[in-house]
């Protein structure tokens, strides 16, 4: 006769104490990040709420929250876009020079110096911007007003101090240069030798090799780096607060003394003397910045991660 016994329990995988502690602390750290993020978001929303629901007349400026925040968002984006437009091509050129043109010893030193740019505190950039860059730009602004004023960007009147949106954007550009060039350098140097040699063996010059094998490979990395730089430029506070002569209003005129402020700089300048609903309004603008920055960073991550899909090694 046969008895059917229950199949033996599969042996439980042995879990060591060290593994469990590590897994637990890693999970905890991951959850902590989410909790902090959610906490910041909840704080911003709850503190911004009174400003959202307040009657338009009570908001500083007297025209409601949207009218208050819109020029700030505009100013923030304008400064960041100028920075990006200036810094990205320069950063790509620097990265290409370091990875494929410079003699090896020079390349190492140069990479190091560029990285140092990222270590300069933003208050120092601010001083540099107002004391060196702004005065140096004035002659250009005067010239641009005279000869280029048919372009709305250079409508003038030219600023006598140089504390313009263009100066601020250029300064931001220098600040984000190391971020973009570091990431570009990284992806360019990873361009597979296999494909670089394929291009060279076809009789490509060095530049043609870069066009065929390096740039297509590094493209999404550069985009990701630019987005990270954009995130930094959007959130920059102190340097902008020092350099930019802000008077509000939406304008594309880059060379005059009346510029829209940026969200971060505006908060820094106004917060100490604000009370009551004014504080809620500033926090509401901070919420807007939080959302924009989060979106940009998520976009950047997504673009960078897409690189995994075409490794080229398949």
């Amino acid at each position: 006769m046969t008895t059917t016994s229950a199949p033996p329990e599969p042996p439980r995988p042995k879990r060591r104490v060290g593994d469990r502690i590590f897994a637990g602390s890693a999970t905890g750290a991951g959850i902590l990040i989410l909790v902090v993020l959610a906490g910041v978001a909840a704080f911003l929303v709850s503190e911004a709420w009174p400003a959202v629901t307040a009657p338009a007349g009570d908001i500083p400026g007297g025209d409601g929250l949207t009218a208050y925040i819109a020029p700030l968002i505009f100013g923030t984006l304008l400064a960041a876009v100028i920075a990006l437009v200036v810094a990205t091509p320069l950063a790509v050129a620097i990265a290409l020079y370091i990875t494929y043109y410079a003699p090896r010893r020079l390349a190492a030193g140069m990479g190091y110096v560029i990285d140092l740019l990222a270590a300069i505190p933003s208050v120092v950039y601010g001083f540099w911007g107002i004391a060196a860059l702004a005065p140096a730009m004035v002659p250009f602004y005067v010239w641009a007003e005279e000869h280029l004023s048919f372009i709305p960007l250079f409508a003038g009147p030219a600023s006598a101090t140089g504390r313009t949106m263009l100066t601020a954007g250029l300064m931001l550009g220098v600040m984000i240069l190391p971020i973009i060039s570091a990431i570009s350098r990284e992806v360019f140097s990873q361009a597979p030798a296999l494909h670089r040699e394929a291009a060279l063996a076809l009789g490509a010059t060095r530049w043609e090799m870069i066009k065929m094998a390096v740039l297509p490979y590094g493209k999404s990395g550069v985009i990701g780096g630019a987005m990270l730089g954009l995130g930094r430029a959007l959130g920059e506070t102190l340097a902008i607060a020092i350099v930019l002569s802000a008077s509000g209003g939406i304008t594309f005129n880059l060379i005059s003394n009346s510029n829209p402020s940026t969200i971060a700089a505006n908060i820094a300048l106004k917060f100490p003397e604000s009370t009551g609903l004014d504080v809620n309004t500033l926090i509401a603008s901070g919420l807007a910045l939080f959302v924009i920055t989060l979106a940009v960073n998520m976009l950047a991550r997504w673009v960078v991660n897409r690189r995994a899909d075409f490794s080229g090694a398949n």
Binding site: P192, L194, H195, E197, A198, A199, L200, A201, L202, G203, M212, A213, P216, Y217, F310, S311, G312, N314
Partner: peptide, 18 residues
């Protein structure tokens, strides 16, 4: 110019992936 006259095929296939 030399490489334009003398073609080369490598150990691992290396078509340009993009």
């Amino acid at each position: 110019d030399v490489r334009r006259q003398i073609g080369m095929v490598f150990q691992r296939p290396n078509p340009f992936p993009t």
